[in-house]
Amino acid sequence: MSYEAKIVPIERYGLINIRADFSAQRVIGESLGHELPVTAHTAVHTENFSVLCFSEDQWWVRCNLEQETDLFNQLYDLNKHNHCAATIISDHFSGFSLIGTDARKVLRQGVSIDLDDYASGQCTRSGFARCGASIQIVEQYFHYDLFVESSYASYVNLWFDAARKGVQNSQSG
């Protein structure tokens, strides 16, 4: 007996961290072919990548692993003449997809944010379990992608298992 939810590691994704000041944002937007989202918790989704806004000067570009190097090189070049920084972080973070009718019942054990406030397509960063997570809301209540610092990936696996079916029934028992 357990919640109706599954946790799947996200494989083969590219992830680039972007910091940029006001004028650099424009330049980066032009380079990517899409303005950077600037409202809190919003993201833009294009065919090839998503850009997630986590702060007034902080974004993630999420793409396929195959595109990561080229996208990174393209963005890194902009560091020279603009106050911005592009960094590959797809190893620094580990991703988990939480999917199912009971996805919310699993997630609410780990985050204290109001899940009614974050709609499909949005993103946010919050406390999660004991390590914090960056969250992409793929489908509100049913599909959340969570990224945690990779050194916590093993702990987060145990955590999800226990959250889904109880500590007694999981390996951590």
Binding site: R130, A153, Y155, L158, W159, A162, V167
Partner: peptide, 12 residues
């Protein structure tokens, strides 16, 4: 849930 292996967030 914070018992057994989950009592501290062991990093690897």
């Amino acid at each position: 849930m914070e018992r057994g292996a989950l009592i501290i967030p062991a990093r690897t």
